[in-house]
């Protein structure tokens, strides 16, 4: 049998006589919260019953509190509900789990976890609910409509997030396939230039992060007034942000991301000749 040495003696009145086990001494911090109760672990059958009735009454009171419909959700109601549930929580912990009568270390271990959990919860709510209340923006357009009282197979389109492949990785396969009759420009488009990772050309590439280039030579003629198709295409390659294609241009739902092409192509090191080849190739797409 271990006995608790008297570090806490200054605060505690040592009433060991009613204790069956020395290890069941009051928890240090627990005693601070709950005061000193002389009963040992086994003394409380009646106490357990009374506590159960007390907890049942609290639950009933909680139910009564939320009955007035116009008060629901207001802080007048929330505050007492939180207080009552905290009381219930600690009653169960202190008496049903008899933490009140246990070694102080157990109390500290549990409170440590509880406080950490509380901090995590508060931090998350502050971070995503208060300072950056954005979850709704993410959910926008990604949820299914609600049909009352209808049971049917879920109908939704899976969310497809196009992922750009690493530029180097995509080179071999398509390049090999297209190599036979491919122009130098097309080879750069499918290979070293990495263009096909983001742009689609019917029958050749399926990228979806940038505009479809299937008919780019035709489109380019009229996109920027006063600029020839060739100049527009060249500018779009060497200085992508000079004109960013909008959703309206393409007849799609979402704008393309400004700056994405600069970010992904600036490190490629395409030479002027490469660009010439590319422009020549793209000018054939009518």
């Amino acid at each position: 049998m271990s006995s608790n040495p008297g570090q806490e003696g200054a605060v505690a009145h040592h009433e060991h006589e009613s204790r069956e086990h020395a290890s069941h001494e009051d928890a240090g911090i627990g005693r601070f919260f709950f005061g000193h109760v002389p009963e040992g672990v086994h003394g409380g059958l009646k106490q357990y019953g009374l506590l159960a009735i007390f907890l049942a009454i609290i639950t009933f009171v909680e139910f009564v509190i939320i009955l007035p419909e116009d008060l629901r959700g207001s802080s007048i109601v929330i505050a007492p509900l939180v207080i009552l549930s905290v009381i219930k929580f600690f009653c169960v912990v202190a008496f049903f789990m008899h933490l009140k009568f246990e070694h102080g270390l157990l109390w500290q271990i549990f409170v440590a976890g509880l406080v950490l959990g509380l901090i995590v919860a508060i931090a998350l709510v502050l971070l995503f609910g208060v300072f950056r209340p954005t979850p709704r923006a993410f959910s926008e357009g990604r949820q299914q409509p609600f049909v009352h009282h209808v049971e049917e197979a879920p109908h939704y389109e899976p969310l497809v997030v196009p992922t750009p492949a690493p530029l180097g990785a995509i080179a071999p396969a398509p390049a090999a396939g297209a190599a036979a009759g491919a122009s130098p420009g097309q080879q750069i488009f499918m290979g070293a230039g990495g263009c096909s990772a983001c742009h689609a050309i019917e029958g050749l590439a399926v990228g979806a992060l940038g505009p479809d280039l299937t008919h780019i030579a035709t489109v380019a003629e009229s996109r920027v007034p006063g600029q020839s198709a060739e100049d527009y295409i060249r500018e779009s390659i060497v200085e992508p942000d000079a004109y960013t294609v909008t959703a309206a241009d393409e007849g799609i739902d979402q704008d393309f991301q400004q700056g994405l092409m600069v970010a992904t192509t600036s490190s490629l090191g395409l030479t002027d000749e490469d660009v010439d080849e590319l422009v020549e190739y793209l000018m054939t797409l009518r």
Partner: peptide
């Protein structure tokens, strides 16, 4: 049990963060 507090704390926080954020019923 102390560690389980963290587990449920995170799940409860997730619920609270997403509270009032649903855009369909």
């Amino acid at each position: 049990l102390g560690s389980d507090c963290l587990f449920f704390g995170s799940l409860i926080a997730t619920y609270m963060v997403y509270r009032g954020q649903s855009i369909v019923g």
